[in-house]
Design a protein around this nucleic acid. Structure first.
Lengths: 218, 218
DNA sequence: TGTTTTTTATACTGTTTCGCATAATATAAG
DNA sequence: CTTATATTATGCGAAACAGTATAAAAAACA
């Protein structure tokens, strides 16, 4: 480790810190990344140009490269950001204790908020709409996609396991299988949302799936 | 209808017909369209160039335009071809009489064949992988996607209705809801297939879903 | 044989693409 | 005030892109 200049205190946190040395940045990295994410969600990888990314972020091309690397790296960082955001939006619902039906209902409501947001039409789910397509040829993206699937399956499974322990589900219920159906419902909602299926219908799909998973009783 | 030249007998059918007038075609339209479909499934709309399409079909650019129109039209015709093929592959299974479990099992087997085919990795489902993404901005593609969803939901629903009538399902079963879960299972399998989830795992997901939809009994 | 018709083959046009080289600017440090 | 550092701003350049114009080729017709 031969390095004269003191490494700045790991500027991962966005604390302004002790005054950097050169010309100050004209952009906020996390704001710019959010704009890039918007574009990639709207148009996918190939149809999003660096010119558009530059215009949306307010950063010119060299700054983009300096901050995030080339287009593929920016795409991957956008995807990471998307997953972080989605995870954060669902974390509490998966953590807090509540009846299984309510928990599922709230998860699907959050998912719908994510998929239907967007000014120029519903942006859908990044994983389903663009990342999965890239996954077949890009091992790094594929690993992220697979990890996302596994994480969601696992979270749902532990919900069902807990519910089963609490007697909300019959003893014959298989948490792993129910979890895959819960994930499948997320996926079908994500796809249909992108085709502008109205929210009411998507909510009905979620409701029906919950009934099947938890028993039609109310 | 002012038209001197006799219209060739609606050359929709590929019958060689009564000898056309000018230079004969060097390509077979349906073979070329299949090649184009392969490319669009692999890379999506934006990442597939006309040069690649030209090379794959063996047709040069002007011939492509003459036969199929511009890139978007070719994409749409490829999608129509995909849907026709998929419909044909499933038609008999939806038509013939058989137990609900067996029917579902066979449908998922055919779906897996479609999604996992491809030399350079699984090509996934056209609707899920690329058409749904385009659907948000292109009304014509959107209409096709929505029609596809409705058609699949309907086909599944009538299977479940029949099974219910035959006493294979409890009287409380809701065919429409079960159909949406069957479709959701198709969708989750399509997405995961593209991320190279192995066939065995996808079959397990289908098996689990069938158990939930039809009752775990064997 | 010569004309008409249909397709193929070649090549061009103007635009867009990504990535980078270079120069200008703004700050801290010495 | 000068130097070092970090960023912004401009714009180049080679390649790829979609679509089309023009010419050559291959068949039927007269």
């Amino acid at each position: 480790m031969v390095q004269k200049t003191k490494t700045p205190p790991a500027s991962g946190s966005d604390a302004p810190g002790p005054r950097r040395r050169g010309r100050p940045r004209a952009y906020q990295p996390d704001v710019a990344l959010a704009k890039a994410l918007d574009l990639f969600r709207k148009d996918g990888f190939a149809a999003t140009s660096l010119d558009e990314l530059s215009a949306a972020t307010g950063m010119n091309r060299p700054s983009l490269y300096g901050a995030f690397g080339d287009k593929r790296e920016l795409y991957i960082k956008s995807y990471q950001r998307y997953r972080d955001d989605a995870r954060a939006a669902m974390r509490d619902i998966f953590r807090e204790e509540m009846p299984i039906r309510k928990r599922l209902h709230r998860i699907y409501a959050v998912a719908l908020d994510i998929y239907l947001s967007g000014e120029a039409g519903p942006r859908g789910c990044f994983t389903v709409m663009t990342a999965a397509s890239e996954a077949v040829a890009d091992p790094e993206i594929r690993a992220m996609v697979l990890e996302g699937f596994a994480e969601l399956d696992k979270a749902f499974a532990s919900c069902f396991r807990l519910a089963k322990d609490k007697g909300e589900l019959p003893a014959t219920a298989d948490p792993a299988v129910l979890a895959q159906i819960a994930s499948a419902t997320i996926h079908t909602i994500a796809i249909r949302a992108r085709a502008r299926v109205p929210r009411k219908e998507l909510e009905a799909i979620a409701k029906g799936a919950i009934d099947v998973m938890c028993g039609a009783g109310r």
